[in-house]
Design a protein around this nucleic acid. Structure first.
Length: 390
DNA sequence: CTGTCATTAGTCAGACAG
DNA sequence: ATTACTGTCTGACTAATG
């Protein structure tokens, strides 16, 4: 007995910017971007109107997190440096990010969808996959009902793709944005998917797309027509077979409703590049603070870690990482700091540094870590409570 | 006794995404 | 004065083990 899967991908429209527009409705219709660091909140003026920061006022290393569709029309997209975007759209309104508000609205829209279709896969703050396979209702009316529930709960619009799998639904939710519904069956793949650029496939990024272009493959249809043995020889067994499958719209990944985090990290780009020796005190303090924040996050989320790593990004954007694994689990900031210090010693410091990061991986829930820790201690009493020599 | 092979863990870089 | 932050996954390489 086989059942036809019906999977939805729901993506909130310009999510962070749209949440800001709920708070500042007078900005509706304008080019607005969210992002940056040290961006000040709008200031109320004597006449009751608010004074907003403009992109041209910004100085620093921040990037755009989200932009309204009006800003995108000016060539200003997420990920772009704010200094760069200020040249394209100096008059665009710049707002600081309010992550607490976004998390709140995220929770609201997910709850609204859950009340209609409970089998949901979380894909970050502004999108989800929904398994609609077992719901007996016309696809279009179900999609409209979900969108209405999201709008009622948040005042925000979203776009939905509904197809037999996650791969196609993800592509389709983007085809009629904003505020759209796209339903697609396998029969429609040649007409509606094959003309699209390979970059539209989730997992084909700039590098893979560029490599495909070099081989004369620009569209998903051209990728589908490429011999699988050619793709395997160019991209390796696993990626080559995958490219061939996805180009034909094939994807059997299940909806994953629960998962455990694999790593917890904190990183920070400095206001200015720092020199390893000249700014040693400053760097040490930043490293310690990152370790304490990671320890905080671990404790708050209830995990312990046995692999601690650091990341450095240099002036030329070249990044290096080092990590170290212990036979026991740790969650204490001081212990993490010692391990991070050991990692740092193994990195040659010639260039100036622009970013420092600390990551904890090899996670297990705190309760299990304590059991495990007790076992390790009795087996290796000399390890506890200090840090073994590296 | 030595070489080879399979397997696993650890480490690091890089691609990708939201 | 261009380029954040958090997180997942995979490939390549090395070392250890049997």
């Amino acid at each position: 007995m086989i059942s036809i899967r019906r999977i939805a991908h729901l993506d909130m429209d310009a999510f962070f910017a749209s949440v800001e527009l709920l708070r500042y409705p007078e900005l509706r219709g304008q080019a607005v971007v969210v992002g940056g660091r040290n961006v000040h909140q709008p200031v109320e003026q004597p006449d009751g109107t608010k004074r907003f920061a403009r992109l041209r006022d910004y100085a620093g290393r921040g990037v755009i997190t989200t932009s309204t569709y009006e800003a995108r029309a000016l060539g200003v997209f997420s990920g772009m440096g704010l200094m760069k975007s200020a040249q394209l759209a100096p008059d665009a309104i710049l707002l600081p990010a309010n992550f607490d508000a976004y998390r709140d609205y995220s929770r609201r829209f997910k709850n609204a969808v859950e009340s209609i279709a409970p089998k949901i896969e979380d894909r970050g703050i502004d999108e989800i996959y929904i398994d609609l396979s077992t719901i007996q209702e016309n696809t279009n009316s179900l999609a409209r009902r979900i969108k209405q529930a999201v709008l009622d709960a948040t005042g925000l619009t979203c776009s939905i793709g509904i197809t037999p799998n996650k791969l196609l639904s993800k592509i389709c939710s983007d085809l009629d944005k904003p505020n759209g519904i796209t339903v697609l069956s396998m029969e429609e793949i040649p007409a509606r998917i094959w003309p699209l650029a390979t970059k539209k496939i989730n997992g084909i990024g700039p590098k893979a797309a560029e490599k495909l272009t070099r081989h004369g493959i620009n569209t998903i249809g051209e990728l589908a027509a490429a011999p699988v043995q050619f793709l395997v020889s160019e991209f390796g067994r696993s990626t080559g077979v995958w490219l061939h499958q996805v180009a034909h719209g094939l994807d059997d990944r299940p909806i994953v409703t629960e998962s455990e985090p694999k790593s917890i990290s904190r990183e920070s780009t400095f206001e200015r590049d720092l020199h390893a020796k000249q700014n040693k005190a400053e760097l040490t303090e930043i490293l310690t603070s990152l370790c304490m924040r990671v320890a905080d996050d671990l404790k708050r989320k209830g995990y312990a870690s046995r692999t601690i790593g650091i990341k450095l990004k240099f002036s030329d954007f070249h990044a290096v990482t080092r990590d170290v694994t212990l036979p026991m689990y740790v969650s204490d900031g001081t212990q993490i700091r010692k391990m991070a210090g050991e990692c740092l010693k193994r990195i040659p410091l010639t260039q100036k540094i622009r970013l420092l990061g600390v990551r904890a991986s090899g996670l297990i829930p705190m309760a299990e870590a304590e059991l495990n820790h007790a076992g390790i201690q009795s087996e290796f009493p000399f390890l506890a409570p200090g840090i073994p020599k590296i």
